[in-house]
Design a binder for these strands. Structure first.
Length: 442
DNA sequence: TCTGGGGTCCTAGGACCC
DNA sequence: TCTGGGGTCCTAGGACCC
């Protein structure tokens, strides 16, 4: 069994820790620049405040209803999150921290799941002050749904063994529960997909479960197919250990409080974001291969413009001066006069760890240039050196190339030829690396 | 010389999550 | 007047090569 633990109205619950008078009162927490509502207490939900609602639209209503309003304090929420997660890990071996307020827990070895989770919930409340709900089922997708019922059991008087804990069992109550769930509320089915499926007459989670998975796969891709299987109780997503959760990108961006038109003003903002991004980079002990800068007007602007542009570093870097120098040039290249900009940001991608010596060496190669025989010979000698140093070395290949490599391996000569003409790695293509054991071909 | 098919690499954009 | 920020993964399609 898998449990999904979710903190109730997390940001509001955090605010309540240090302001006891907020307990039992309607409270909302706003996003940056007090743009829109990102967390609501149950009382605020009952008053009809929606998630993501722009604050300016409901300002008057909020005032007249006596709702307490707070700007967000992310570093505080981050600290509280760490405490909650630490508490969970004290009692469970196998935990995947999924987001700031959620964690998946492997319950394989636990006999009385519901009882265990109920105790966990009580302990978290005692040690951190944060109320949580726990859903239990065979797959991640189903435990998400179970969690929704657990939350409702807190609010309403649903018959339930343990308050705040709910279990869906595939052999017993599955279908009757799925019939109650709107297709939009399934994990992985967002706005677009739900509109598409509803037009075809699939309205509930039960309907989706019955859908032909090959049809789903063909029309909407592998993720929907997996969701269908998960609804049937077949596990498609394992609980990860968070060991291999190497970050793939770092992004820092903000909407401006007011619209900016002057280049200097935008540049000033960007300096700060690049600074923050490079700090993160170094904190995680990473180097970045590509820097991307984007600039846009508000989506609601009549004169709409958005653009972004990247630079590939010759060598991966974590030097904030170097990153800024390139970012500055990039911004200049996409800035246009006469537009009212709303947002600028920087994204660092193609992140590498220091210890990835090989990708450093091979990552230096120019993109899109097939290397000459001489250049590849140079690479080969570098690999030899690695081989000598570390015993068995490894070559990084994009997984697409693996088949070709295996084919070439069939004879010594074809393998040799293949080495001579291949791109061993491309710094741009990072998502699907395969490490192939290095074979000394001499 | 002409042509087509298959494979790879890469990008932009879409969709989703919290 | 005022509409968050930070991520991940997948896919279609273009360019290129053989």
């Amino acid at each position: 069994m898998i449990a999904l633990l979710d903190c109730n109205n997390f940001y509001v619950s955090c605010e309540r820790l240090f302001n006891r008078k907020l307990i039992g009162k309607p409270v909302v927490v706003l996003s940056n620049n007090d743009g829109c509502v990102i967390s609501r207490s149950n009382e605020a939900k009952k008053l009809g405040i929606l998630m993501g609602e722009p604050f300016f639209k409901i300002k008057n209503r909020v005032k007249s209803l006596g709702i307490y309003v707070y700007s967000s304090n992310y570093s505080f929420y981050g600290d509280m999150s760490k405490r909650v997660m630490r508490t969970i890990k004290n009692y469970c071996d196998h935990v995947e921290v999924y987001s700031i307020d959620e964690a998946f827990i492997n319950l394989e070895k636990i006999k009385e799941c519901e009882y265990f989770c109920y105790n966990l919930k009580k302990r978290i409340l005692k040690f951190t002050g944060i109320p949580v709900s726990i859903g239990i089922s065979q797959t991640k997708t189903l435990s998400k749904i179970a969690n929704k019922f657990a939350k409702d059991s807190e609010k309403n008087d649903i018959k339930i063994n343990y308050k705040g804990v709910y279990k869906i069992n595939c052999d017993e109550n599955l279908d009757s529960i799925l019939k109650l769930i709107d297709i939009r509320d399934i994990w992985g089915i967002g706005k677009r997909l739900s509109i598409y499926f509803k037009e075809l007459g699939f309205n509930s989670a039960f309907d989706l479960k019955k859908m032909n998975q090959n049809f789903a796969r063909q029309k909407k891709g592998i993720l929907v197919q997996k969701t269908i299987l998960e609804l049937k109780g077949m596990k498609c997503y394992e609980i990860s250990d968070n060991n291999n959760d190497k970050r793939k990108s770092i992004c820092v961006s903000r909407s401006f409080g007011q619209k900016l038109t002057k280049y200097e003003d935008i540049r000033e903002a960007l300096v700060l974001y690049v600074q923050k991004a490079s700090e993160k980079l170094r904190r995680y002990n990473l180097y970045c291969g590509i820097v991307n800068v984007f600039l846009k007007t508000s989506n609601y602007e009549k004169k709409y413009y958005k653009n972004s542009v990247s630079y590939v570093f010759k060598e991966p870097t974590s030097d904030s001066r170097q990153i800024w120098m390139e970012s500055d040039k990039l911004l200049k290249s996409i800035y246009l006069r006469g537009y009212e900009f709303n947002k600028v940001g920087v994204i660092l991608t193609d992140l590498k760890e220091k210890k990835q010596i090989q990708s450093f060496l091979f990552g230096n190669n120019d993109l899109n240039n097939k290397k000459s025989f001489e250049e590849n010979s140079k690479l080969m000698s570098v690999m030899d050196e690695i081989n000598r140093k570390f015993g068995e070395g490894k070559i990084r290949l994009s997984s697409d190339s693996v088949g070709r490599f295996k084919k070439a391996q069939k004879s010594k000569e074809s393998e040799r030829k293949w080495f001579m003409k291949s791109d061993f790695s491309s710094p741009c293509y990072t998502t699907k690396w395969c490490d192939i054991p290095f074979v000394n071909i001499n």
